[in-house]
Design a protein around this nucleic acid. Structure first.
Lengths: 329, 329
DNA sequence: CGAAGGTGGTGAATCGCTTCAGTGATACGG
DNA sequence: CCGTATCACTGAAGCGATTCACCACCTTCG
């Protein structure tokens, strides 16, 4: 028979103690070794499991961390979510994963819903890091931002996009590419996103002829954007701001009968496991997902436990050369 | 200034009503149009948001649905999780996603933790459908099983594996393959899993010479299993019980310098978006993930709302032919 | 020997909402 | 015109923990 859920009061009755004593005992506080043993035994006997809901109401902490992703269509973000979810479980927390589906408006709504859900903290991969609601949100709940700095006092795991872009563009340039297309996800219409700033700055510095295309959320949209970029007489190389977008370029190239890297070179950004399995393997910028996961989990746990709320970890990229970039020299 | 969280009592005070009336009004119950309007206005004015924790404690319903995945390393299961999470959000529920990481023991622990977390229902992709804890669990919370039937009274979205296997093996046979390897994920050591039963039965019926290999959790393990299967003089075709395992075969083939489908044919099972992007595209059995997501969300919502707990939806497969199977005839 | 201090507990309030049993009205059928 | 529904709303009792303010008792020390 499914053992009925026991309350703390029943355990108290069984041991002859007060509920308060039991509560303390179960958390190893304030009581003698002996009673702790007795309480534990009784709890086990009765099949007692603390009710997280009641606990949350009384203590004000739910044990949940919100994870707000920009677009879970993106495989790399999926990996990130899986990793973070696991990492949090190891800290005895649960992840509440939400997906903004590439839409800044929804990002705003979901962030608020997450807060209303009383998460102890949240990890965010912001679509629109400059949106005006962030500061207020960061005020009311500990936030860790991944990827971009937030307009608000949040902890951060930022990517050194400057280095990443430099790594990618210098590689392309060294192999003789001069006319390149950049495919970036549509974000909020802030024209001054760091990544874009860096890419234009670097392109200028390196004397590259560059055109920027934006790709909406999802593989189909990336493929469509790639079609726009790959018109005849177009660039010799495409630099994509995520591996998932690069997959769209592979798809488009296949549809157009173009060979990679024969007709067009492709460069990614992220390094997802699938990138190594494509033909040719996708040359990409590796952001060390494990490091990001660990940092984010560490920062958010610390902040949720009342620790430092303003920390900053900078992630360095490395180049993962595979074969999707042709040597034109 | 970050508006302080208002309680229902404050709204009551502001409107001159009782907390109970406010509670009813906010849920559109039992009150006159006019007071509802007044309450809504006051609530908006005060920035009131219901506290889900208190609500859960009082009502016994958390609005959360647990999602227990067998192995989130599997890309198809990732897609499934993303889809279900979105689907549930549309029904104003949250998904609590957990990953058994391919380990039946952990599956058991997580299932229990999920129940203790007071989810209103759970969706499970069981690693070990015959495990003895399921019946009890199904008793204490509505469960929807995806993929396999459970040892317990759960609702189900089952795959017609018989048809799936037939589709795959007949295709291989028609193209002249006789010696095939089967790569299946390690599950609980029940030797009589439907899929395996079907595959041996079908192989026998079709006169195929078959050898079964098991692949543990993750791409690396799949690659390793593929190495075992692809020894010289081995099979002409490999049938993988998930696309993610097939990716391992692609990886192994590359390492061994074998061409697909020149030296060995590969057949998948799931149909993940990436399968179309590989070279050659992976021929696979498509299970219509959208249909599964919709069915699972529908079933679990219904069950969580107190509706029918025993429903059964059978999913039919289709063959997605792409080019990873060579015609030997 | 009495005050101070540390253990190991108790009782009651509290968290914010839901829900059940009423309670005055007003409407209605006979 | 009375009895009975129906409607709109109130009061109070939970839900199952946590936590704060005490308290009794035993040491310990000046």
């Amino acid at each position: 028979m499914p053992r009925k859920r026991a309350t703390i009061r029943e355990v108290a009755k069984a041991t002859g103690l007060s509920p308060a004593a039991v509560s303390y005992a179960l958390r190893g506080l304030q009581v003698s070794e002996e009673t702790m043993e007795r309480v534990r035994a009784a709890a086990a006997e009765l099949g007692y499991e603390a009710d997280p809901i009641a606990r949350a109401l009384a203590s004000g902490r739910t044990g949940m961390i919100g994870l707000l992703c920009g677009s879970l269509e993106d495989l790399w973000q999926q990996s990130l979510a899986v990793g973070i979810s696991r990492g949090l479980r190891e800290k005895d927390r649960y992840a509440l994963i939400l997906d903004a589906v590439g839409d800044p408006a929804r990002e705003r709504a979901l962030a608020q819903q997450l807060r209303d859900q009383r998460v102890d903290g949240m990890i965010v991969q912001p679509l629109d890091p400059a949106a005006p609601f962030w500061p207020e949100l960061c005020e009311s709940v500990p936030v860790v931002a991944i990827g971009d700095s937030l307009a608000g006092t949040a902890a951060e795991v930022v990517f050194d996009n400057r280095s990443g872009v430099t790594l990618a563009l210098e590689h392309l340039r060294e192999l003789g590419h001069r006319r390149i297309a950049v495919l970036t996800p549509t974000r909020a219409s802030t024209p001054d996103r760091p990544a874009d700033v860096h890419v234009t700055a670097e392109a200028e510095r390196l004397g590259l002829d560059m055109e920027v295309f934006t790709a909406a959320h999802g593989l189909a949209a990336a493929t469509e954007a790639a079609h726009r970029a790959l018109r005849p007489g177009g660039p010799t190389a495409v630099f994509c701001f995520s591996d998932s977008i690069a997959y769209g370029v592979y798809a488009a190239a296949r549809e157009l009968g173009l060979s990679i890297p024969g007709d067009v070179s492709v460069m990614g950004y992220d390094d997802h496991p699938m990138s190594g399995l494509l033909t040719p393997g996708l040359t990409t910028v590796d952001w060390n997902i494990d490091g990001i996961v660990k940092a984010a989990v560490r920062l958010v746990s610390a902040a949720a436990d009342g620790g430092a709320r303003r920390r900053r970890v900078v992630q360095k990229p490395t180049l993962e050369e595979r074969g999707s970039v042709r040597d034109l020299t």
